[in-house]
Amino acid sequence: MRALCFVAMGDSLTAGIGDPTEEGWRGWAALLAAGLAAREGEARFHNLAVSGAQTGDVLNRQLPEALKLRPDLVSVIVGVNDTLRCTFDIQAVAARLDTAYGAATRQGAQLLTACLPDPGAMLGLPGALARPLARRQRAVNAVVHALSERYDAVHLHLAEDEWVADRALWSADRLHPGERGHRLVAARFHGLLAARGIAAGSPPSCEPQLPSPSRSASLLWLATAGTGWMARRCTDLLPQLLTLAADEVRHQVRGSSARLDLSATHAVRSALAALTATERPDAA
């Protein structure tokens, strides 16, 4: 019998950032892969996710490699990095996700997706800075929700207040889950897959096996890698984010903030309406 093949695509969340082991970053996808089959050797796992990846990277770089592997199970969790770029375009994001989802499912793979919390809330940014990012992430999540239903994906909701507010689930950078958070994601996906008869192995434990990083280790990370990350984002996003924040304040003063939300909602509807109709894999 052919071993079940699981291919993970996406950004730093799927690459395992925040869940360090002696061999390197592990993450939810690797934890899930270990519980897919009842016996060792009955499942293969390939992680193509790359830190910093955007939807365009998944479509143009990761997807061709994934399709070559003829996967039975494919995860596509991406979009946060798109919201952190001055080039953000929800119509382009929707088109790329639709193409990636469609290509994977047409090959017969079961799709895994997730909606994600907005980075502004995670970083605790001031309201005028946080609201534009939240609006963008809500737009991405709305697209992911709609396309997940279209392609019958196993979809996980990771934007709930409970998930976001529990600091024990998050690493020092406040953007990536720690080991406990990655384990929770893996366990929740395992439960959904088991309900569909796909995951036959034992679910991953939700309890961490490694001690949480010390405060000094967390501060060291923030002072080194974290500072570099912020510097890279500031040069790309900050100028536009300041413009968005100024626009936010102007609308707030005028009492017309609702227009920004309505505009974002209209953009999502237009993006979904613009997608080329693609026949569902199970449609005949």
Results as ranks from 00 to 15, higher is better:
residue 195 A to Q: 13
residue 199 A to D: 07
residue 202 S to E: 15
residue 154 V to A: 08
residue 181 G to I: 07
residue 197 G to V: 07
residue 175 L to R: 13
residue 159 A to M: 07
residue 168 A to N: 11
residue 140 V to F: 06
residue 203 P to V: 02
residue 132 P to R: 14
residue 211 P to T: 06
residue 207 E to S: 13
residue 208 P to M: 11
residue 214 S to A: 03
residue 185 V to N: 00
residue 178 G to M: 01
residue 162 E to L: 12
residue 224 T to D: 07
residue 144 V to G: 03
residue 183 R to D: 00
residue 191 G to P: 04
residue 161 D to E: 15
residue 150 R to E: 14
residue 212 S to F: 01
residue 186 A to G: 04
residue 166 D to P: 03
residue 145 H to P: 00
residue 172 A to L: 03
residue 178 G to C: 13
residue 154 V to D: 09
residue 216 S to D: 04
residue 149 E to Q: 14
residue 224 T to L: 15
residue 172 A to G: 04
residue 201 G to Q: 11
residue 217 A to F: 08
residue 136 R to S: 04
residue 135 R to S: 06
residue 216 S to I: 12
residue 150 R to T: 10
residue 131 R to W: 15
residue 159 A to F: 10
residue 144 V to T: 15
residue 142 A to V: 01
residue 200 A to F: 05
residue 208 P to H: 08
residue 164 V to F: 11
residue 174 R to H: 14
residue 200 A to K: 13
residue 203 P to N: 08
residue 225 A to M: 11
residue 223 A to W: 07
residue 210 L to M: 03
residue 200 A to Q: 15
residue 180 R to W: 01
residue 151 Y to A: 01
residue 217 A to Q: 15
residue 148 S to N: 00
residue 180 R to K: 15
residue 175 L to W: 08
residue 131 R to P: 00
residue 139 A to R: 10
residue 152 D to Y: 04
residue 179 E to G: 07
residue 224 T to R: 14
residue 155 H to A: 10
residue 145 H to C: 06
residue 203 P to Q: 04
residue 158 L to I: 02
residue 219 L to V: 04
residue 207 E to I: 11
residue 218 S to G: 15
residue 140 V to K: 01
residue 138 R to F: 03
residue 181 G to T: 09
residue 143 V to F: 10
residue 211 P to C: 08
residue 138 R to I: 00
residue 198 I to Y: 10
residue 164 V to I: 13
residue 174 R to S: 12
residue 171 S to I: 00
residue 148 S to G: 15
residue 197 G to R: 03
residue 184 L to G: 01
